[in-house]
Design a protein around this nucleic acid. Sequence first.
RNA 1: GGCGCUGUAGCUCAAUUGGUUAGAGUACCGGACUGUCGAUCCGGUGGUUGCGGGUUCGAGUCCCGUCAGCGUCGCCA
Length: 593
Amino acid sequence: MLRTHTCGELNKDHIGQTVTLSGWVDRVRDHGGGKFIDLRDRYGKTQVVIDPDSPQSAMDNVQPVRNEYVIQVIGKVIQRPAGQDNPKISTGEIELHVQELQVLNVCKTPPFVPNQKDLPNEDLRLKHRYLDLRRQPMQDTLVLRSKIIKAMRDYSEANDFIDVETPILGRSTPEGARDYLVPSRVHNGSFYALPQSPQIYKQIMMIAGYDRYVQVARCFRDEDLRADRQPEFTQLDMEMSFVDSDDVIGMIDGMMQKLAKDILNIDLPLPLPRMTWDEAMTRFGHDAPDLRFGVEIVDLTDIAAKTEFRVFRSVADAGNHVRGICAPNGQSKFSRRGIDELTKMVQEDFGAKGLAWFRVEDDGKLNSTIAKNFTAEELAEIASRMGANPGDLIMIIADTWEVSCKALYGLRKRIGAELELFDPQEMNFSWVTEFPMFEHDAEADRWIAMHHPFTAPLVEDLGHLDTDPGKARAQAYDLVINGYEAGGGTIRIHDNKVQQKVFGLLGLDAEAAQERFGFLLDALQYGAPPHGGIALGIDRVVMLFNNLENIRDCIAFPKTQKATDLMMEAPNLVETLQLKELGIEVLGKDEDE
RNA sequence: GGCGCUGUAGCUCAAUUGGUUAGAGUACCGGACUGUCGAUCCGGUGGUUGCGGGUUCGAGUCCCGUCAGCGUCGCCA
């Protein structure tokens, strides 16, 4: 037997027993006469002692042992000498006195060790992921991830959801994100696409009568990465029949309550708060606002319209918006140079023309390089509407609605973090609902589905489809946790006529729609029940529940920003013969431009 | 594709802002040590400063290009 116990479970109750442990050498402390070894596995650490009372064979075998060697020790559990307990580890009251020690495997000098104080650079961690995954924080995260997924599955099963696997090899649908394509050998020149989500399959499952479907589904999108976005990610994909938005939201409310209780021991009051997309954009400039702190956007357009300040007035006159936020005690963190930096950010990242700002002085008056353009009354009105207090920093964006939303969202996010306006331990759950059906693509002068083309409009907005599609709102809902979109879903169109109309608005005529989604359109005509669903980003939920800042730390084998796997070195070039079988020839990078 | 940050010993970092032979901690190697738990003490090995070019009497430091990692905008139905 290679082990009788793990390295985390021995305690005073085991004193006197002879046990066998196997694990990795976390550290060796050599005292000449004897050695202490911290033996580690994923359950914990146990101190192993070799001293002159141990057999000579054990002394010989331990001689070459170094960090991360895999060893097996047989020994007696003994109480530590008085005053030698280590309260930092669960096994700290005992130690193992070695009778026999075997090296099960050696280890090259590792580039880094799991208990290292300073984390190595991320590329090194990714290259030697097997070492990185030995680190306690990574193990904790993967255990948490496993628990979260189990809780989700338990909840789903308790609510009669059926777990169904859908294909990984599917059909390319050029709407939306770029597809990862897989060439077909049997059908040279044709390609499968990896699923961006099992969207259509789960709708078909509803039509097939499996009224509650769930899947822990891997999804693939060939788009550029972010701290919270991987090209390959996992979502909890769900779909329900005979439901409206409230039913789906209620179902997820219950799941979040269970997760919060099971994982974080937080009692989450239900229902989770909701706000419409319009409200979110007006108050926070974003469709996934972080509600852990205030600092809401204040509209100043009417004041701007009557000032002598040309920058403001011209924006107001043009029908655009002058809006701002007030950073509480913002002057403490943002000097003139800090403000310059924020200005650069709104200009370069969000396309704003500039950033107007005021310092709130001790007497409550506003001071700024632009203050001379305003009357005292106007300044007082701005200060009052902003709810400004001495020490605050008021930031104002005068621009189009879209730019002001983006820039103020960016500013709010940044000052929230830098001024520490919220407790990072706090968890905030909410819903954003009634998203617009369509966004207008100015360049192509056409409508684009905001969610996806199978999203049902609000019943009362059906008329807008004919008259003013931009006004039509969708039966859509996003779950927002701490300012991140943790999931999103919609009620789907189950009426073929409505579906055709939406396709029409998206510039797909009947023929094109049939060509791309014919199977779904056909299926919808064979008794499709009203249905809808949601997909939760599991990686993101893990990230948020574990208070982590990037999604790579929640995934065992993540990709880099350039979508490569540094450990396996994927993607890689393949043999010409492989390509030939697939009927594929690779053009040099420069040849296509 | 744009913008930004980073790249110096196996690892984490420093190098007085262009000036002598590029340092420290840790790891590694050798030695000492019977109670440590980030053990301690003594000694030692270890560097094409990511790569390529340029400016200069002189480049880790400045410039151009390039590669890689990260952040962000575009993008992500």
